[in-house]
Design a protein around this nucleic acid. Structure first.
Lengths: 327, 327
DNA sequence: AACATTTTCGCAAACGTTTGCGGTAGGTTT
DNA sequence: AAACCTACCGCAAACGTTTGCGAAAATGTT
């Protein structure tokens, strides 16, 4: 079964290709009678415009690229879902690529997106990305890039982030309301700017009378190990702060293993998308940083970029404290 | 900054477009000297071939479509990750679309994929999809479709699934090894074929002396409610079977609320991708149905389709019991 | 009836590639 | 010196659209 094209329709109807093209997009130059004929035949012949030809001709791919370390993540999947929603609604499609925390893969992925002449790129860089040259090249080609979550330290680029410092500060503030003495704070990879910001926000707000032990876990298992280790001390910390869902899940397993009662024996607070805190009983109190809302924000920023706005901005998503029963 | 094309390179070098094209793909007709010149200039000019033009000319998009109810899911994200990996490795890109459990959106998504002349489609249909016409149209256009997880009941289509009946049977068998009397089994939407298969596999294998109560939960919260309700009976069930991660998380919260000891007071087994069972302590014993492995299987089936194999098949992924501490 | 205007349509170029085929230059064989 | 290879390269068509411009046909105006 060969594809039906404008040409084929034009031949059957005995009109020109341009007439068919215009008729199908309701161009005023074409008579109603001709339009009707064309539209009908197009329907019975199951005409589907060839996107590649259109993109080539119009130099507009209606395609966005999305670059992410990994899709299966506590946070990104909801971000992706939000972006995809808006894309479809606005007539765009979405190409998704994983970099797997490998800057080399990231670079080739960017090349793929360039070759597909995407209209814009959403990017969450890997922690080890140092060379911003590939991204710069996108910019040179006039392809807007909106960074999200893990963003580079560059000045003039578009970034949408959760309010990292404010979120951590909010969590610290919640702890300040309680009568805790010793808090164990587990953060992520200390090389990432997101970690630095959260450390700053947390330690600046936590009242100085509280003893705070800051540790770093690169993944869930390490968070489990750290927590287990600190639960073996005497006295044990009476509160636990987790920077992310990944860390929370590790820490929570350690607490379950120790058989501690929450919040009587240990209080917990985390920064989260909201899903994991509700897996446990009591529900964990958390500062909400919505991947879904961040996606919406990123998309709207992308749209303003495409409408010609050239000045870059760093947008932050406000966050709120969601009370669980862990404090 | 205007894009560099073959034409531009050819003009600078004073050769023809075809020579440039051939030089860049190392065609034997072109002399080494010319090749060197072309390749060098292409590099300094940052030449990036226009994928749209190539696809139009070669009628081959090197693009796959992926249709899924929702990205943020316990299972699909790892499936997607696997597909994306293989795609990148094989030089394909991936367009991902969510249908949001709406058959209408699903149909328009398929149209988008057709218009993009994708080389193939991976599809997980929504539970309410009745009309297979849009999928049939793909087939008519020569675009192979590989269904996964939620597959239609059609005979001649390509399907890759986890071994649903076998997985449930494996779980029942594990329960048979223990001295339980009353088991509460929670399944998902009873209208889905995946549910029916698992029910059959489970109840056929469970030894008849065991009292089995079968219930249905459409989402996590309902699983929580059902479990809570059954934990209020006397005597309480001494074992719990969950059909999926979504149900497990709901049930587990109920068990935490009741403060029951696992496995002393209640035993638990589930069918899972493997992530959630390890969130708890003790780890939940589960029958593994890997989204990642299913993705790999689906991709390899897709490749055989593209290489001309026209006969359809239903492939099932074998599953294994992973021992936790909940039995 | 001659002219002006409007409606309706077609021509052809362009987007950036790929590729079959033909052509030229130089060298090798008779 | 004629004939034949071989190595190298260019011409031009094609993929399926969009769109500026001009032309023909229909309609309206004096």
């Amino acid at each position: 079964m060969t594809n039906t094209t404008l040409k084929k329709i034009s031949e059957v109807l005995g009109v020109s290709i341009s007439t068919v093209s215009r008729a199908l997009k309701n161009h005023p130059d074409i008579s109603e009678k001709t339009k009707a004929k064309v539209v009908e035949l197009a329907q019975t012949l199951d005409y589907e415009p060839n996107a590649n030809a259109i993109h080539l001709r119009t130099n507009n791919s209606n395609l966005f690229g999305l670059l992410v370390p990994t899709i299966s993540n506590f946070f990104y999947d909801s971000f992706i879902a939000a972006i995809e929603e808006d894309c479809r609604q606005q007539g765009y499609s979405l190409i998704i690529l994983q970099s797997g925390d490998d800057p080399l893969v990231e670079a080739t992925n960017l090349k793929i997106l360039r070759q597909n002449r995407v209209s814009g790129v959403f990017a969450c860089i890997t922690p080890s990305t140092k060379n911003m040259q590939p991204f710069q090249k996108m910019y040179d080609m006039g392809i807007p890039v909106v960074f999200f979550d893990k963003v580079p330290d560059l000045a003039n680029c578009n970034r949408v982030c959760v309010a990292d410092a404010a979120a951590a500060s909010l969590a610290a503030n919640a702890l300040n309301q309680t009568a805790i003495k010793r808090v164990l704070a587990i953060f992520g990879n200390p090389a990432m700017s997101i970690t630095k910001k959260r450390i700053l926000g947390f330690s600046h707000t936590l009242q100085s009378s509280t003893l705070c032990h800051i540790t770093y876990a690169h993944h869930s298992e390490e968070a489990l190990a750290i927590t287990t280790q600190h639960l073996a001390t005497d006295p044990i910390p009476d509160a636990l702060f987790c920077m992310s869902d990944e860390i929370l899940t590790g820490a929570m397993k350690a607490i379950q293993m120790a058989g501690l009662l929450i919040p009587q024996q240990i209080k917990i607070i985390t920064i989260s998308n909201g899903f994991f805190p509700n897996l446990y009983h009591p529900s964990i109190t958390y500062v909400e940083t919505s991947g879904y809302r961040l996606g919406k924000l990123a998309f709207s920023k992308m749209m303003t970029c495409l409408s010609g706005d050239t000045n870059t901005a760093e947008l932050t998503l406000p966050c709120t404290l969601v009370q669980g029963g862990s404090i």
